[in-house]
């Protein structure tokens, strides 16, 4: 546990000393802020809709969701493996799992901070005298954090198996796109059985029909946590495999 916290603190500090994190935060806050205001105007002041749009329905939201976690996690293992820092970590009294989890929680914390923009917009509107419908706002935030945790785990897994950060980011983006889009493409086949199977693992649908509408569903919570855990397990095995190369 001590090792996990130490790695987490260092990774988080490492993220924020690099300009990438600040650039990402600035661009995304600017982009989603503009989107929120635009949707507020278009919907005639429907705060709940504007919030739901920027926090889970828009293409910009899903694009950010697919591209940011891979960019954050791409260096975490692959580059450290190349420059010897992974050797430094893995010869310290810290388990492989603690190293992977420390890095994961750092990326996840960043994403949690990243998605706080919707909370800030809602709080601002609330402060101006129009309280939003808080359960969907809070649910949407929680769901966003859960979905981005899953994609951070996918990114770490890719980083653990590729030696180039660019390659690992590309693989993680492709993986995220496949995970998001595959259940949507299944509809082109006229098969109830297939549709049923893929609906169960439809990330977008699971998020949009529960958390985003303010519904706390433990089944969906377990769904996200289980997949996240699965990819973290694979990432740990990937780190372990580096010892054999």
């Amino acid at each position: 546990m001590n090792g996990l916290i130490t790695v987490y603190r260092r990774e988080l500090a490492g993220l924020f000393v690099a300009p990438l994190a600040w650039i990402l935060l600035t661009v995304s806050f600017g982009l989603t802020g503009w989107l929120f205001v635009a949707m507020l105007e278009n919907s005639g002041g429907d705060i709940t809709y504007a919030n739901r749009f920027t926090g889970g329905l828009s293409g910009v939201y899903w694009a950010l969701m697919m591209f940011l976690p891979p960019l954050l996690t791409m260096r975490m293992i692959s580059e450290e493996s190349r420059n010897g820092l992974l050797e430094f970590l893995l010869t310290s009294p810290v388990t492989d799992a603690a190293v992977v989890l420390g890095k994961f929680f750092a990326a996840w914390t960043f994403m949690a901070l990243f998605w706080s923009n919707n909370l800030i917009y809602a709080a601002t509107v609330h402060g101006l005298g129009t309280p939003p419908d808080w359960p969907p706002v809070l649910g949407g935030y929680m769901g966003s954090v859960l979905v981005s945790g899953l994609f951070c785990a996918v990114g770490l897994f890719a980083s653990s198996i590729f030696s180039s950060p660019i390659l690992s980011a590309f693989a993680a983006m492709c993986g995220s796109i496949v995970m998001l889009m595959l259940p949507r493409l299944v509809g082109v086949y006229d098969s109830d059985w297939l549709t049923e199977q893929f609906v169960a693992v439809d990330i977008m649908r699971n998020f949009q029909t529960t958390f985003l509408v303010g519904l706390f569903d433990t089944q969906v919570l377990v769904f996200f946590l289980a997949w996240t855990g699965f990819f973290l397990f694979l990432a740990t095995r990937g780190v372990e495999a580096k010892r054999w190369k």
Partner: peptide
């Protein structure tokens, strides 16, 4: 290790503090 792996973005004492925490 031969490559002397150290986190370049840290100050010297921060690097050692990290090592101390790991241990």
């Amino acid at each position: 290790a031969e490559s002397v792996p150290l986190y370049g973005e840290h100050r010297v004492e921060e690097m050692l503090d990290f090592q101390g925490r790991l241990h």
